[in-house]
């Protein structure tokens, strides 16, 4: 098997040690970091994302592959300018103020990274201003909000209102997700999209960033 295909397969198998070893081998063989990133790591995660979407594999399999991908990424990082991995775009994510549930948000973060996006994860209990300020400062085109509680979901509408107040509506897309929210709620508060799960979140980000 060709080295990059082998690397991609190891990533899909969730074998982080092998991914690290093969990444070193690929670099030693003279392949560029960009080549390895695009043709093995991201392509491997794309396969994983599609299989996850088709319910052929499950969450732990995705996480193992993501971990394997990071093992490769860590080796590539120093080779990119200013330690910056070339990304398909920046996304700010976080769980809204008052809410400490971050499993769903973490999954979205993992899947977005796997798809080649740069993710700025603000963690949980994040006030509305911080989402907007960070997105502006970092030049992120997308904000992803997560909430698990019906009591905290109204914070999402505060973020939407803040974007509107600062004239950023449409320029910075707002995506929401979490157990209590829905498509209808997204429309109601003026968010741009509702992501049912982490796979859907990647699809939506793909769609928005492709348009720009």
């Amino acid at each position: 098997m060709d080295l990059l295909a082998n690397l991609s397969q190891s990533l899909q198998d969730g074998d982080d040690e092998k991914v690290a070893a093969l990444t070193k081998e690929a670099l030693a063989a003279g392949m560029s970091a960009k080549q390895i990133l695009d043709n093995a790591l991201i392509s491997g995660m794309t396969v994983i994302g599609n299989r996850f979407k088709a319910h052929e594999i499950f969450l732990p399999d995705v996480l193992l592959s993501a971990r394997a991908m990071y093992a490769g990424l860590e080796l590539l990082k120093p080779l990119f300018l200013k330690d910056d991995i070339p990304s398909r775009g920046k996304v700010v994510v976080g769980t809204v103020q008052g809410d400490l549930h971050d499993i769903g948000k973490n999954l979205v973060s993992i899947m977005l990274k796997g798809a080649g996006y740069e993710v700025i994860d603000l963690g949980n209990d994040v006030p509305p201003e911080r989402f907007v300020d960070t997105a502006v400062a970092q030049g992120a085109a997308i904000i992803g909000l997560s909430a698990l509680l019906t009591t905290t979901m109204p914070v999402m509408s505060q973020v939407a209102a803040l974007l509107k107040e600062r004239g950023l509506t449409g320029r910075i897309k707002l995506i929401i997700g979490g157990a209590p929210v829905s498509d209808a709620y997204a429309r109601e508060i003026g968010a741009d999209a509702y992501g049912f799960d982490a796979v859907k979140a990647v699809e939506i980000v793909d769609r928005f960033l492709m348009r720009q």
Binding site: L59, P60, L63, N106
Partner: peptide, 14 residues
């Protein structure tokens, strides 16, 4: 880690 989805223990016994 915030979860044990891929811990060794989980993978061994799930």
């Amino acid at each position: 880690e915030g979860h044990l989805l891929i811990s060794k223990h989980t993978r061994r016994y799930r």
